[in-house]
Computed example of a mutant assay.
Amino acid sequence: MTGSNDKSGRSAAIAAAVILLVTGIVFFILPNVMISLASISPWLSASLAAILVLAFFLLFWLRARYQRGRE
């Protein structure tokens, strides 16, 4: 494997690592944010958590669609 296929694989690995790192940081601070929001509304707190979890999967789904479109 040489050429663009190797470069493409490396690029995908770097993108996945960055996405996982950012997501890990967000999920690390999420409990504190949820506790703060729960003082306002438990529904608001749960909604934020659900949106962030769905956004994690949506991001990988969109990346896969983008990659399929490029091939």
Rank of each mutant, 00 (worst) to 15 (best):
T2L: 13
T2Y: 13
N5G: 02
N5F: 07
D6T: 05
K7R: 11
K7C: 04
S8L: 15
S8P: 00
R10I: 03
S11R: 07
I14L: 15
I14V: 15
A16L: 13
A16D: 14
A17F: 09
I19S: 13
I19K: 07
L20F: 13
V22C: 10
V22H: 00
T23C: 09
G24K: 00
G24V: 00
I25D: 08
V26W: 03
I29V: 15
L30I: 02
P31F: 04
P31L: 01
N32T: 03
N32D: 07
N32I: 05
M34A: 14
I35G: 05
I35N: 09
I35H: 03
S36C: 00
L37P: 10
L37S: 04
A38G: 15
S39G: 12
I40F: 11
I40V: 15
P42E: 11
W43C: 00
W43V: 00
W43A: 03
L44Y: 00
S45Y: 03
A46D: 07
A46P: 02
L48V: 12
L48Y: 04
L48C: 06
A49S: 13
A49T: 06
A50F: 09
A50N: 01
A50D: 01
I51R: 01
I51Y: 02
L52C: 12
L52T: 07
V53M: 09
L54I: 15
A55I: 04
A55K: 03
F57H: 05
F57P: 09
F57I: 12
L58E: 08
L62K: 10
L62T: 06
R63A: 13
A64V: 10
R65C: 08
Q67N: 13
R68T: 02
R68E: 12
R70Y: 04
R70K: 15
E71S: 13
E71D: 13
E71A: 14
